[in-house]
Simulated scan of single mutants.
Amino acid sequence: MHHLSGKRIAVLATHGFEQSELEVPLKKLREAGAGVHVVSPEAGEIRGWDKKDWGDMVTVDKRLEDARPEDYDALVLPGGQINPDLLRVEPKALEFVKSFWADNKIVGAICHAPWLLIETGIAKGRRLTSYHSLKTDVINAGGKWEDAEVVTDQGLVTSRHPGDLDAFCEKLAEEIVEGRHERRAA
């Protein structure tokens, strides 16, 4: 994995994030030297969803209302069915996601998290993957859905499910090291 010292990454999540989809990137990115903050509309702790039931609590480092996109180099959006569904009706969360994209920063989305890419208009014209149940949603939003473990398109990194997390983290780190992406219009 690329060395990420000096890089700062926000992981946006709320209750119901898929446990491994938050914890694996958090651990791997921190091990690579990045400063990583779990950002949430909730203060204190948020509870994960672990495959079939509620999982463990994770500490929130920064409340969404106090987090500034300009303080970070990249954004990671874990999936789980509940978490992105709650976030996509939260205007502050959508603004947070949009500002990373507008600033040509790296955005990574796992599994069900591309719902947030659809909601913010980021999916339109982009190559991406997601959990297979979102395929039609992505296509209807103008995205180019691909059945691949990880898809990268101009700083947008997406993956299908928890089994692809190693490849996702690897690709994400590579994109973060490359820096901002001048995006051609989709």
Results as ranks from 00 to 15, higher is better:
83 N>C: 15
115 W>D: 10
168 F>R: 09
46 I>H: 05
181 H>A: 15
101 W>F: 11
130 S>C: 12
174 E>D: 14
142 G>Y: 09
157 V>Y: 04
110 I>D: 07
67 A>S: 04
169 C>E: 02
71 D>N: 07
112 H>Y: 09
69 P>L: 09
135 K>D: 10
157 V>R: 00
89 V>P: 08
4 L>Y: 01
16 G>F: 09
42 E>W: 02
92 K>C: 01
53 D>H: 13
58 V>L: 04
161 H>L: 12
55 G>D: 08
151 V>W: 05
48 G>N: 09
173 A>L: 05
166 D>W: 00
139 I>N: 11
154 Q>F: 09
162 P>N: 12
78 P>C: 00
137 D>S: 15
170 E>L: 06
152 T>Y: 06
58 V>M: 05
144 K>W: 02
91 P>K: 08
63 R>K: 13
23 E>F: 07
16 G>A: 11
170 E>H: 10
1 M>F: 01
139 I>A: 10
89 V>A: 10
151 V>K: 12
84 P>C: 07
78 P>M: 04
109 A>G: 02
77 L>Q: 01
170 E>F: 07
59 T>R: 13
73 D>R: 02
34 A>Y: 02
155 G>R: 00
91 P>A: 05
89 V>L: 05
84 P>H: 04
179 G>E: 03
32 A>M: 04
169 C>D: 04
25 P>H: 07
134 L>R: 12
128 L>H: 05
145 W>K: 10
109 A>M: 03
105 K>I: 05
1 M>N: 09
96 F>W: 01
39 V>F: 01
26 L>F: 03
172 L>K: 00
174 E>M: 08
5 S>P: 01
145 W>V: 10
177 V>L: 06
174 E>F: 11
163 G>H: 10
85 D>V: 10
165 L>Q: 10
167 A>G: 13
39 V>A: 03
117 L>T: 02
22 L>V: 08
159 S>A: 15
118 I>Y: 07
25 P>L: 01
65 E>H: 05
185 A>W: 14
51 K>E: 15
80 G>N: 06
11 V>Q: 09
72 Y>F: 11
107 V>E: 06
22 L>F: 05
127 R>K: 15
29 L>A: 05
155 G>F: 06
148 A>M: 07
61 D>P: 01
114 P>M: 03
29 L>Q: 08
64 L>S: 03
91 P>M: 00
35 G>Y: 12
106 I>L: 06
132 H>E: 13
21 E>A: 04
19 Q>G: 11
178 E>I: 12
129 T>L: 06
25 P>F: 00
8 R>E: 03
130 S>H: 08
160 R>Q: 15
10 A>T: 03
136 T>K: 15
50 D>F: 14
20 S>H: 14
23 E>R: 11
13 A>D: 06
80 G>V: 11
75 L>Q: 04
181 H>G: 11
79 G>A: 11
81 Q>K: 11
155 G>V: 10
158 T>C: 04
120 T>Y: 00
125 G>Y: 02
81 Q>C: 08
6 G>T: 00
156 L>R: 08
106 I>C: 13
87 L>R: 00
